[in-house]
Design a protein around this nucleic acid. Structure first.
Lengths: 144, 144
DNA sequence: TTCCTTGCAAACGATTTGCATTGGA
DNA sequence: TCCAATGCAAATCGTTTGCAAGGAA
């Protein structure tokens, strides 16, 4: 079991739920991906292993526990990815055509600047900021 | 008719569709708002004036024509706002609880830095970048 | 035994669409 | 006149939930 998996197990334990086989499959599929995945995409990835309704319930449990984070996309589709405290902070490239999302990590230098910038920006508002994500929209290699 | 409204009229003309009364109401409501609005929110705003199905059709026409831009939020809700070429470039504060979105404009200095940063970031990827948006998530004043 | 978990099917809610009617150039 | 636009209702589609069966502690 990877270090990450151990962290997931611990977190679910704290949340009072089990880290079952189905849930492990979902977490593993998300770890394998280079961007957030929707329930439908996960279902395709895990053919015959996890029915759709269980996928939604699993994703909901994982989100409650803070193991995954949602990303809302076109046509009402929500994609999930491993939470930042496990997978590291990153940003998103979103394809305006097919909705695919790819993670990008900024060079440390740029990321530091961005954080500084977000701090200043949120200080100007009435929101209490929790996090941020830079969304770059365009076309993915396949749709270009 | 405001300058903006004239631009909208021209753009719709180029797209070969009419700028009808109902469509004017929707555009006006979006211009009035300080953040993107969903079909349901617009319906509330325009009670008795525009039925829900027409709202969706209007928003779709306006999006096709490039007059409004979508923002995808929780629970499959899509909110629309006046496109950037009409309303100016800005970023979003997104409430993680109720889904409300508030626009923020960065001070010129910070915005310039951000654009420079996005340029460098997208140069590292296989995406062809079209635009960007900094999403700051947190809680709005009401939900805090 | 006692809960948590799972799977199927039915229910939901946001959005879309078919079709007949209305309205503007 | 003629085609775009509208309104209602029915249909879609992603997602959620009720309920009965399965499993682990």
């Amino acid at each position: 079991m990877s270090i990450q998996d151990r962290q997931v197990e611990d977190r679910l334990g704290e949340a009072g739920v089990r880290y079952t086989g189905g849930r492990r499959l979902v977490v593993a599929a998300l770890e394998r991906s280079d961007g957030p995945l929707s329930a439908a995409e996960l279902h395709r990835e895990l053919v015959g292993k996890v029915p759709v309704s269980s996928l939604y319930r699993t994703l909901s449990v994982l989100e409650e526990a803070g193991v995954v984070e949602p990303h809302h996309g076109a046509r009402g589709v929500t994609r999930y990815e491993i939470a930042e405290w496990l997978a590291g902070h990153h940003h998103h490239l979103v394809c305006g055509n097919c909705g695919a999302v790819e993670d990008i990590e900024l060079p440390r230098r740029l990321e530091l600047r961005l954080e500084h910038l977000v701090g200043q920006a949120s200080a100007l508002s009435s929101f209490s900021a929790k996090g941020h994500s830079l969304e770059v929209d365009g076309l993915c290699a396949r749709c270009a």
